Amino acid sequence: MPFGRFAEQNANHQGRSKPATFDFLGFTHYCGKSKHGKFRVKRKTSKKKVQAKLKETKEWLKINRNKDIHMIMDRFKRSLVGYYNYYCITDNTQSVNKFRDKIGYLLFKWLNRRSQRKSFTWDKFRLFLNKYPLPYVRVKVNIYNLRKEISYIL
């Protein structure tokens, strides 16, 4: 598969608008450019992995929606922190933010199904999230600074 600095030019010659991508270790690797316009391999969370994690979360909420709210929110905090520790790398914060938003929507949906009456409106849910906040996204690993740190070690 053609991939690298000249992949975009080669794709244009072959009639495609974008170069090919590939999935590896839960990330989709694609060709991009840095802020300075130089070639850079960028990574974002693989769609398959996001969909699988959302499905797993939905199933868990479906089964456990009537449990204590403290237990539910504690489980989500731990789950999101683990997700962030793996997927929060350079160039992937937008994808992880979207995932966090979808988790928030699933929480809203399934917590509203705890009884026949709606428990939350969006305004009430925002107040609830102020009391029990979900962790925010932060880049855990800057993969482009790792090269510099490794070269100092060597």
Rank of each mutant, 00 (worst) to 15 (best):
N10Q: 15
K131L: 12
S46T: 06
V96T: 00
G37M: 00
T121Q: 06
Y84L: 06
F128M: 08
K35V: 09
W110A: 10
F108D: 05
C31F: 00
N92P: 10
K58A: 12
G32K: 00
C88Q: 09
F125I: 04
K58T: 14
Q9D: 04
K42A: 06
L25F: 10
N130M: 04
D101R: 15
Y86H: 06
N64Y: 15
F120M: 02
A52R: 08
V141E: 04
Y105G: 08
S17A: 11
S46D: 12
Y152G: 05
F27P: 01
H36P: 01
G104H: 04
K124R: 15
D91W: 08
L61H: 06
H70L: 07
N142H: 04
T21E: 09
E56N: 08
N66H: 15
M1K: 08
Y144L: 09
F76E: 09
H36F: 08
S17P: 03
F125K: 06
K53F: 04
N142E: 07
N66A: 12
P133A: 12
N142L: 02
K98H: 13
V139W: 02
R113E: 11
C88A: 15
Q9E: 14
Q14F: 05
T121N: 04
D91L: 09
H70P: 01
Y87K: 07
E56H: 11
N85Q: 15
F3Q: 07
Q14P: 01
S95W: 01
F6D: 14
S46C: 15
K47L: 08
Y144M: 08
L54F: 06
K77E: 03
R78V: 11
I89F: 10
D23R: 09
L129C: 14
Y132C: 10
N142V: 11
F6H: 09
G82T: 05
F24C: 07
R40F: 03
K118R: 11
F76M: 15
C31Q: 04
R65E: 13
G32W: 02
N130Q: 07
